[in-house]
């Protein structure tokens, strides 16, 4: 037990702890929204498209997370535009942006001279190497998301549940959709350092699936999936530290184990 306490004396661990809190809250809220609204696939497209921005940043030598933000937000709005205006089927638009982003990323990384040592940490995440500026941005994002979702909670809920009815009432549904999809994109990007591009979707869906076993109320879903995400992340972090295995993958594995146990519990009790 003292081993656990001792860890908190290390600065890298304190940062990882904060990152876990921020990731859990942002993913808890945004994940509940995308799962309820059935836009997980769009979120997957945005996530993977952001790899193009990371590759471009490597090539031109600027902050990879900035590149990821540009590509993530660009693809989020691009998917909406393709679907609404250019009338491409939504699932096809998603697949186009998903694979285009990945393809550009691979080309840019290939063109980057020399070895790109951090690439793996963007693909698979490494919560133990999160920096103070990244934590600051995660903190700001959390504040924005918490305020937006608290202030407009009922409107967001009603639009997500029955968009047509919300439109008929004259709510600015398109504006809400653009804001929320942008928040999804930002959440994805700022949590890339925690579990990586390949695995971030799980932080947005597995805690929610677990919480959804026990609650069918949107507000409770947000709160309980944030809590589950936090415990899963911390447990995964400890396991990865003591077994010396990759943190991102371990966190996801832990989340899946929690889901499995919860599902079995639900079955038997």
């Amino acid at each position: 037990m003292s081993n656990f306490i001792d860890l908190f004396a290390y600065e890298f661990f304190q940062k990882a702890f904060l990152a876990a809190i921020f990731a859990s809250i942002s993913c808890g809220i945004v994940g509940s929204y995308i799962v309820s609204r059935r836009i997980v696939f769009i979120s997957g497209g945005i996530t993977h498209a952001s790899f193009g921005g990371i590759g471009l940043a490597f090539l031109l030598g600027f902050n990879p997370l900035l590149g990821a933000v540009i590509f993530a937000v660009g693809s989020a709005l691009g998917i909406q535009f393709f679907t609404r205006v250019a009338k491409v089927r939504e699932d096809s638009s998603i697949a186009i942006f998903w694979s285009l982003g990945m393809a550009l990323g691979i080309i840019f990384v290939f063109m980057t001279p020399g070895y790109t040592p951090n690439l793996m940490s963007y693909l698979f995440g490494n919560i133990l190497t999160v920096t103070i500026p990244e934590l600051t941005w995660m903190f700001i994002l959390n504040i924005v998301i918490i305020f937006f979702f608290s202030f407009y909670f009922q409107k967001i809920l009603y639009i997500a549940f029955d968009e047509e009815f919300a439109r008929a009432s004259g709510l600015p549904v398109n504006l809400f959709n653009y804001i929320t999809i942008t928040l999804v994109a930002l959440t994805v990007v700022l949590n890339i350092r925690v579990v990586g591009i390949i695995l971030i979707l799980s932080l947005l869906t597995i805690p929610q699936a677990t919480a959804n076993l026990f609650t069918k109320n949107f507000k409770n879903l947000i709160i309980s999936s944030s809590v589950i995400a936090f415990f899963g992340t911390m447990a995964g972090l400890f396991v990865s530290y003591f077994l010396d295995i990759p943190s991102g993958a371990t966190i996801i594995f832990t989340l899946v184990v929690i889901f499995g146990v919860a599902r079995l519990y639900k079955h038997f009790f």
Binding site: Y158, F161, F165, L171, N212
Partner: peptide, 13 residues
């Protein structure tokens, strides 16, 4: 994930 009461209340839109 929405309750009956919340659906009815959404009529206030």
């Amino acid at each position: 994930p929405i309750t009956v009461f919340d659906v009815v209340r959404s009529g206030s839109l």
